[in-house]
Computed example of a mutant assay.
Amino acid sequence: MAEHEMIGTSRQSRIMAHFLLVIGVIVVAFPIWYVFVASTHPLQQILRPPLPLLPGAEGPSNYARALGGGIGQIGRVGVDRLLLNTAVVAFGIAIGKILISMASAYAIVFFRFPLRMVCFWMIFITLMLPVEVRILPTYKVMVDLRLIDTYAGLILPLVASATGTLLFRQFFMTIPNELMEAARVDGAGPWRFFKDILLPLSATNIAALFVILFIYGWTQYLWPLLVTNSNSMNTIVIALRKMISFADADTPWDLVMVTCVLAILPPILVVVLMQRWFVKGLVETEK
């Protein structure tokens, strides 16, 4: 009797858990679906609520206009150019942060040099500095180096990562000394030890950090706003802000919705494609 009651309670718990999960998915996914539906309707339909909940027939023409450079509010720059700019920035920031973080953590953990821990704490202390404190001096450096409206100006000031250095340092400290000694006996130098041993062991950590940093770079707003003046160098987030006017009649909401859909697709694809590695990198404790 008790066993049947336990089975019934367990089944009810699973049903309730799935019900809450479905509700959560609907709450999260409905705004995205609404934006997609709006991107397939003409501007007049969007300005005249209520908006239908099913896609319309204007989708292909709206997407063709957006990708073909039909957005006057951003200087007739196509969304394809905005996506390229944003992808270059996101990949550059993610890859740059990972490389610099791994290199700095590798030096701090595996090399003995004067003021080693002082260097680490100087890196760590930068976490406590607000962005506003650093952004004006950084902008002045970019102006002096003539890196305004360049990919280098968008990427280089954001590639240093104290958080990434800390995470890789904590992981490298779990590497047993016996592994280093065995590599040294086999004649492996510092570069070979890093490339053949540490890099493969860090694969899940790199994947998890890449997903986080890619989304961080993709959604950057303040720094691209300061360091770009040309519409052709804008990221997609900055372009979205420029497209929206205070008056609804002056805002091409159909093209805004198309740009929103295209803006959220790459981060979703990165998370979906790297989900297994991302979760493994977050929860895996034994290396």
Score class of each variant (00 low, 15 high):
202 S>D: 04
60 P>R: 08
128 M>Y: 15
140 K>T: 12
140 K>C: 03
234 N>T: 07
149 D>T: 12
47 L>S: 10
234 N>E: 14
67 L>M: 04
32 I>Q: 06
63 Y>G: 00
216 Y>P: 00
145 L>N: 04
285 T>C: 00
6 M>N: 10
69 G>A: 05
118 V>I: 12
33 W>R: 06
117 M>Q: 15
97 K>R: 14
179 L>K: 02
97 K>W: 10
122 M>Y: 07
66 A>Q: 06
229 N>A: 11
45 Q>L: 15
145 L>G: 06
20 L>V: 05
6 M>C: 03
185 V>M: 13
67 L>V: 02
164 G>V: 12
281 G>W: 03
13 S>H: 03
226 L>W: 05
8 G>M: 10
3 E>M: 10
44 Q>H: 07
112 R>G: 01
68 G>A: 00
172 F>Q: 10
274 M>V: 05
55 P>E: 07
93 I>F: 05
40 T>D: 07
128 M>E: 11
200 P>Q: 08
253 W>I: 06
246 F>R: 15
96 G>Y: 14
45 Q>G: 03
159 V>K: 11
77 V>A: 03
78 G>I: 14
260 C>E: 04
287 K>Q: 08
107 A>I: 07
239 A>K: 12
101 S>E: 02
283 V>G: 08
69 G>C: 02
118 V>K: 11
17 A>G: 01
37 V>I: 15
130 P>G: 08
134 R>Q: 15
131 V>N: 09
117 M>C: 02
37 V>K: 03
260 C>M: 13
204 T>R: 10
207 A>R: 03
210 F>D: 02
85 N>D: 04
284 E>T: 12
74 I>L: 00
67 L>W: 00
7 I>F: 04
94 A>M: 13
87 A>P: 06
95 I>T: 01
157 P>R: 09
24 G>R: 10
195 K>P: 02
38 A>G: 09
199 L>P: 05
41 H>T: 12
